[in-house]
Design a protein around this nucleic acid. Structure first.
Lengths: 189, 189
DNA sequence: TACATAGACTAACAACTGTTAGTTTAACTT
DNA sequence: AAGTTAAACTAACAGTTGTTAGTCTATGTA
């Protein structure tokens, strides 16, 4: 566990502020004050406000993409894959709740990387949908509108960052169990 | 159906812009341009940017509160009440998707009415939780952590505004049916 | 016709925005 | 001891922000 660089510290603190007030509402002076320095000093470490947002969001989006890649290449049932997806979301939400907040609320403020982000997101959703469609075809999953299933499941999982910080670490396993039961037995055949 | 006043028109257009970019990122000049007038002219109709946000959010929050009050006073099973709650969310999301977006993303930018909003929201959540707890006590609902159930159900319902505008009006009834099945058979005993 | 009103306009404000330039200071390296 | 560097600082910039004051114009009413 290497010591955090100043740049990483700024990114982490920025994510926290973005979660509280949103990207646009957080000024570089706010961020500097939270770091205990002046706004101009931030620029010794980072290029711009925009690249802070980029770093936060793209890092997480790629975490999801990599996680999904691992899951799709598994040889297991659709339900088991969905279970892995739930675990992936819980993992990332516990690791980086603040960053997830920025991803969920401020992605539209991305500039250069907006299209890239949207592609990663769309690919991810398509993967979830294919897993569900496969499950329906193999009679593992109820024959309900797959779009509605994807929506219901992903909106819950995408909001975990709001929820997890309130729970103690010990109960994360319980959360995973409850959530799996709620999300999957509703569609399990 | 009375004709929309200029003030209502501004509120409606503001909600649309707030949905796209968020409250802070939308300037009064943006809003004026969308209305086809100059920023200063807006002030012939509204008091401030803040009161626009207030009107949007508090109106909807009170719609939810009133809807919940009607539901809690019903004499029916817990599952039927939850079904009514799903219907309430779909109703409001179809009526005012843009306003819901502002409520979900920009409530923290409320000033005078922030505490009032938070109270309405907390009361609403408590009501949902009580309905679920009652259902568990009466063996209508599976004995899973009620907090996780409330979270899962409400985050899905609160995100409907993102989803519904993509669907045609004809399929809203289908959506309601699918969503009820997904959300309720997962917890139904 | 005379008048009142609604609703647009221009001009301006003080405060705040992200960012740059140039400088200082304290800690490591040689 | 001398030199280098990381990382803070002050000062300032050009543009943007919400909002106010005062003015003009068309429409409806007496």
């Amino acid at each position: 566990m290497k010591k955090e660089t100043r740049k990483q510290e700024i990114t982490r603190v920025a994510a926290k502020l973005f979660k509280e007030k949103g990207y646009t509402a957080v000024t570089m002076r706010d961020l500097a004050a939270e770091m205990g320095i002046k706004a101009a000093s931030l620029y010794n470490h980072i290029d711009s406000k925009q690249t802070i947002l980029q770093n936060i969001i793209i890092t997480i989006a790629e975490d999801f993409t990599n996680g999904m890649q691992a899951i799709t290449s598994l040889e297991c049932s659709s339900l088991q894959k969905l279970e892995k997806i739930i675990a992936l979301h819980i993992k990332i939400a516990t690791t980086n709740a603040n960053g997830l907040a920025a991803l969920n609320s401020d992605w539209m403020h991305l500039k250069h990387k907006l299209d890239y982000y949207l592609k990663l997101r769309q690919d991810y959703e398509n993967n979830v949908k294919h897993i569900i469609q496969n499950g329906i075809a193999k009679h593992e999953i109820k024959n309900i509108d797959p779009d509605v299933m994807v929506f219901s499941m992903l909106t819950t999982l995408r909001s975990l960052y709001l929820w997890i910080p309130k729970k103690e670490i010990a109960s994360i396993e319980d959360l995973k169990a409850s959530l799996t039961k709620i999300l999957l037995t509703g569609i399990n055949k």
